[in-house]
């Protein structure tokens, strides 16, 4: 068959792309929800005192390998907000070092190797790691019944000195409980 007619080509392409629109529309909502959740997590997690240099030092939300739409949404959500007096700051980073000073670290990449690398890098920091379905971070997003849900690894949080509110834990789909002291 010859694509001699440009109009038919155009129509064909559009038809083929339709699912993509739908997909893109769905995805946009998903980003919005995830971005909102990302900020909201901060209300249900306690960071150690050492995580802040001063009472008014910034609260950093670091984004690694996240797409622009997600970033834009997040910036809108956290605009002007603060966490316990710490102004919220959004940072996009490519390479992660330990001293990046992230309070929340969101890893958008779907590449498991990349995710593992990033998580390993901040393994000793107090960053609350949030992943997308990679089951490596403290909080992992997943989509269930067309809704954004999450799993929580409370053991990993404990190792970083983070305390997660039971209210949040109760909303998680799966929780890896922290080992109790008497064990």
């Amino acid at each position: 068959m010859a694509y001699s007619n440009p109009i038919t080509l155009f129509i064909a392409l559009t038809i083929a792309a339709l699912p993509c629109y739908a997909a893109i529309a769905d995805k946009s909502l998903e980003y919005k929800v995830k971005a909102a959740f990302l900020y909201k997590f901060s209300a249900y997690v306690d960071w150690p005192v050492t995580a802040f240099s001063s009472p008014t030092s910034p609260f950093s939300v670091c984004l690694v390998d996240s797409n622009d739409q997600f970033n834009a949404t997040l910036e809108k959500v956290v605009n002007g907000e603060n966490v316990n007096g710490h102004p919220v700051v959004v940072r996009r980073i490519n390479t992660v070092e330990n001293e990046a000073g992230c309070h929340i670290l969101y890893i958008g990449a779907s590449n498991p190797q990349r995710t593992a690398q990033v998580i390993e890098a901040v393994h000793n920091s107090y960053a609350l790691t949030v992943c997308d379905g990679a089951s490596r971070g403290i909080i992992d997003f997943l989509i269930v019944d067309n809704r954004v849900r999450f799993n929580i690894d409370d053991e990993a949080a404990k190792q970083k000195g983070l305390v997660i509110s039971s209210k949040l834990l109760s909303l998680a789909l799966n929780v890896k409980r922290r080992a109790s002291k008497t064990e």
């Binding site: 959740f37 909201k40 209300a43 249900y44 109760s170 909303l171």
Partner: peptide
């Protein structure tokens, strides 16, 4: 106070 989390995370079932 008990409802804040479920409201924020849109978990009406909880």
């Amino acid at each position: 106070s008990a409802m804040t989390a479920s409201l924020e995370f849109d978990d009406s079932r909880a």
